[in-house]
Design a protein around this nucleic acid. Structure first.
Length: 400
RNA sequence: GUGGGAUUAGCUCAGUUGGUUAGAGCACUGGUUUGUGGUGCCGGGGGUCGCGGGUUCGAAUCCCGUAUCUCACCCCA
């Protein structure tokens, strides 16, 4: 038997109902915020992800589905959605057009990881990207939008938020931080590596000893420039005013290198170890970094499989018609009448001649609202016998 | 990449110290005598016991390997 690859799965039955319901609901919400659909390829040039997500990230350094195609191109299944959208934004010269551009997307992402609860090698994200808005208000808008989505599905969450500083305050801070780290000998292996590649990620280290050693370290939030400082406090004030509760987490650094300033994560305790249900932040440098004109940008992504664990689809109840025949002569008539009814209703039919009882059972099993039957009597009188399976009432309809 | 647990029917699981033809519940399917569904009763189909080796007269059961699932580390959505 040929099976799905490790960490991949089919979407069927219960899950596809949830999936479609989720996408539909999210789309409605983000449309209200002025976001339009964008579709980008699943396969992209490997260089795109190396440059945007960052070589120091786990995603690029060990989780990419990367291969050489028949044309000798180094290509990659996308591990996340932002890089492709930004590439498209630049390639289509929207940075030159100027103005504001807001997109949403959804679809499969690929990361070669060890599967566990809430973590798959092919998984799906719903995300948005907003280009051309510099104001901190946009950061709040994005967070509010996620809150709207989570609230719609009655999902409980904790919002973790941090600021990573900007071009002005980050470089000097990094220098100071590295100088401090150089005085420490006992840092773990990973942190030694981080020191060279992306030093602020040491704050994210789970090693207790490292956290202990880092206590006297210079801190990000004590080294913001004025703009970063005021933007961040304005965001928090506005969140307060909107009644959105949050926890400032100075160690929230995030694994993708392109974030700057606002970074946030929505976590839920109902998810197990992989508890991030949505995450995102501002990435004001990325457009320029991918060859475009400097453009402010911010976005987020929701992990669909993770959120689907927590949502319920409203029950549908009985709907539509089930058609069946009681004798051979009626089958063709049933086929025709079912087809007519399909102009206005959901209709399924049985091709087998069965007893009335068997047809009723089948209709019931399919959750049909009406069971429509033609037998010898009906054929003679040119009528269809129809039973409403919810109301238990019966009527006869004429046909020609 | 590292560690723990698991794998027997479509699903959830029994299966004794290794011993005849591997079981149950649910699901599926048919019947229950005149054309009335969900919940009664009776019947039926469905398993190379994850896969590959080994030990043994004999393996679902013991040993080795391997795959997958699962949970955690790590990382993230």
């Amino acid at each position: 038997m040929i099976r799905t690859l490790r960490g991949m799965k089919d979407i069927l039955e219960d899950e596809n109902q949830k999936y479609l319901y989720f996408i539909k609901t999210c789309t409605q919400i983000v449309n209200r915020y002025g976001f339009e659909f964008i579709g980008t390829p699943i396969l992209e040039d490997t260089a795109l992800f190396k440059r945007s997500v960052g070589e120091s990230s786990d995603i690029v350094s060990k989780e990419m589905y990367q291969f050489i195609d028949k044309g000798d191109n180094d290509v990659c299944l996308r591990p996340e959605g932002t890089a492709g959208v930004v590439r498209s934004f630049v390639e289509n010269k929207l940075d030159r057009v100027g103005g504001v551009h807001k997109f949403y997307y959804h679809g499969p992402m690929f990361r070669y990881e060890r599967p566990q609860k809430g973590r798959f090698r092919q998984f799906h994200q719903f995300g948005v990207e907003s280009f051309g808005v510099d104001s901190y208000l946009e950061d709040v808008l994005i967070i509010k939008m996620i809150k709207d989505i989570l609230d719609t599905f009655s999902i409980k969450y904790t919002l973790l938020i941090n600021s990573l500083g900007c071009d002005l305050c980050m470089p000097p801070f990094k220098k100071r931080l590295v100088a401090f780290l150089d005085t420490l000998d006992a840092l773990c292996e990973d942190c030694q590596k981080r020191k060279r590649t992306n030093p602020i990620r040491v704050f994210d280290c789970k090693n207790n000893n490292c956290q202990e050693l880092l206590k006297p370290s210079p801190r990000l939030n004590e080294n913001f420039c004025q703009k970063c400082e005021s933007d961040f406090s304005n965001i928090l004030k506005l969140l307060d005013a909107l009644g959105i509760s949050y926890q400032v987490d100075p160690n929230l650094v995030r694994g993708l290198d392109y974030y700057s300033k606002t970074a946030f994560e929505f976590v839920s305790s109902d998810l197990g170890a992989q508890n991030a249900v949505a995450g995102g932040g501002r990435y004001d440098k990325l457009v320029e970094y991918l060859g475009g004109r400097k453009t402010s940008a911010i976005g987020f992504a929701i992990g669909i499989e993770r959120i689907l664990q927590m949502i319920e689809v409203p029950k549908k109840g009985r709907v539509g018609y089930y058609f069946g025949a009681l004798c051979d002569e009626a089958i063709d008539v049933v086929f025709k009448e079912a087809d007519k009814k399909r102009a206005t209703d959901k209709v399924t039919l049985s091709y087998d001649v069965k007893s009335l009882k068997a047809h009723l059972k089948a209709a019931d099993k399919q959750d049909a609202r009406y069971c429509a039957i033609i037998g010898e009597d009906e054929l003679l009188n040119k009528e269809i016998w129809i039973k409403d399976l919810s109301e238990k009432t019966e009527v006869k309809e004429r046909f020609e």
